[in-house]
């Protein structure tokens, strides 16, 4: 395992710029600000969630078993990411690759299912322009989906980095932040599943 060959650190300097700890702290702050963005979308959905404008409502459109399957994929993806995290901590590169690969595939499955759901809705004439309710629905679910997509790109890059560089300190730090991001998206999805799908359908 090659470690990072940083230039000789000044004996006296109390900190190292862009240190992993600072980056993680900064990433927590970013996640907080991103949560605010989702909070706005949740608030918007709370206001417009029943504004069907004469169109179909949640009960006609959503299939809970389908969405539950999506949820299982994403939650499992988040769980298997744990394999990668613990692998990074104990320096087992195979565990890291297996965890990342599995999490990636499960995430991809989630995106596939979501795209299919969107496609079906739009084809049936229930696209986001149909009513304020559908605008709010497509936006909150779609914004989460775009986040997942960016997470998948991030994951693909990290698979490449682990292969090319091994588990250096920098790579391990990035893996940790990717993990934070991935679990964060899971938590947001639980919120979406509960407030956008479950409550609306029940």
């Amino acid at each position: 395992m090659n470690t990072i060959t940083a230039p000789a650190r000044p004996a006296e300097a109390p900190f190292h710029y862009d240190s992993a700890a600072n980056r993680e702290f900064g990433f927590w702050l970013y996640i907080m600000s991103d949560l605010i963005l989702f909070a706005v979308l949740f608030a918007t959905f709370a206001v417009l969630g029943r504004a069907y404008a004469g169109g179909p409502g949640a009960r006609q459109l959503f299939s809970l078993p389908y969405v539950f399957a999506e949820t299982i994929l994403l939650v499992l993806s988040s769980a298997v990411y744990g394999i990668a995290s613990s692998g990074a901590r104990t320096n087992r590169i195979f565990a890291v690759m297996a965890g990342l690969g599995l999490a990636f595939l499960l995430g991809l499955g989630f995106i596939f299912m979501e795209t299919k759901e969107f496609y079906q809705l739009i084809v049936d004439g229930n696209g986001p322009a149909r009513s304020a309710f559908l605008s709010a629905y497509f936006t909150i679910v779609g914004t989460h989906g775009v986040h997942v997509l960016l997470g998948l790109i991030f994951m693909a890059v990290m698979i490449g980095q682990v292969l090319a560089k091994g588990l250096t300190a920098m790579v391990a730090s990035r893996l940790k932040r990717l993990g934070m991001f991935w679990h964060f998206l899971d938590i947001v999805w639980i919120g979406i599943f509960s407030f956008v799908y479950l409550i609306q359908v029940i």
């Binding site: 206001v47 417009l48 069907y52 322009a129 149909r130 009513s131 304020a132 309710f133 605008s135």
Partner: peptide, 15 residues
């Protein structure tokens, strides 16, 4: 062509 703040199809401009 969504309807968050429009005054038709359920949009809410005070939002």
């Amino acid at each position: 062509d969504m309807h968050f703040f429009s005054n038709d199809l359920g949009g809410n401009m005070m939002m």
